[in-house]
């Protein structure tokens, strides 16, 4: 299977994600540059964390309009699994693959710490190896992670079981609506999440709760 990591100017988690993907697939992923107008056919595409284009205008807004994103959107519509982590989640909302928006944290501070998460839906492409309702620990590191959508959209996400991850009660670091840490599209193949699974994907990093995000999707696609 072919996996790719999209690299924007300002991405800073691309190589960490590549390590996780290589561990899961046995081969190094394709690293695709933001200016590339062509992307070989991929089964799995990851938009990594960072500060694409310096967060100019709005987080993810410039990346969402970059040449490579047209390819990512086209392949997503054709069935590729797509994971957006942190800034990658912001890009997915800005390009319209996922609804809502990530606003500035309610407390106005950049938050960098472990969070307790609940697997709200273990039927997405990336959460299939977790138990429904399982509690895991994965760190966040963001200034704009406050998920917001209008009430109709939030209800739709609930009704369609598209809230993939929530912050555990009392551990919402950013004021996100419904404690949302990650959501999916209707198919469950496209997931955006603020926490960084690649930062807790092996014992040497303090835990490996994030690892199954990558091994799960690879298992599903293989």
């Amino acid at each position: 299977m072919q996996a790719a990591v999209i690299v924007f100017p300002g991405s800073n988690c691309d190589r960490d994600v590549a390590v996780c993907l290589e561990a899961a697939t046995g081969q190094a992923p394709l690293m695709a540059w933001h200016g590339d107008a062509n992307l070989p056919k991929c089964d799995l595409i990851v938009l990594p964390g960072g500060f694409s284009y310096g967060d100019y205008l709005r987080c993810g807004a410039m990346a969402a309009n970059s040449p490579i994103l047209r390819e990512v959107v086209a392949q997503a519509h054709k069935g590729a699994a797509v994971l957006g982590i942190c800034n990658g989640f912001q890009v997915l909302t800005e390009c319209g693959l996922l609804p809502g928006v990530l606003m500035q944290n309610k407390g106005l501070n950049f938050v960098c710490r472990n969070t307790q998460l609940t697997i709200a839906n273990n039927k997405t492409a990336f959460t299939s190896l977790y138990g429904a309702g399982e509690e895991i620990t994965i760190p966040v590191a963001h200034n704009e992670g406050n998920y917001f959508a209008d009430d109709d959209t939030l209800k739709q996400l609930q009704d369609e079981d598209r809230i993939a991850l929530t912050y555990a009660k009392g551990d919402n670091p950013n004021g996100a609506c419904l404690d949302i840490a990650g959501i999916s599209d209707t198919s469950g193949r496209i997931v955006g999440m603020m926490p960084h699974p690649e930062r807790r994907a092996e014992a040497a990093l303090g835990g490996d709760d994030g690892k199954r995000m990558f091994t799960g999707v690879v298992e599903m696609l293989s």
Partner: peptide, 9 residues
Amino acid sequence: EKLLANTVI
């Protein structure tokens, strides 16, 4: 509509 504003918010 396409870039300057995010009409969600």
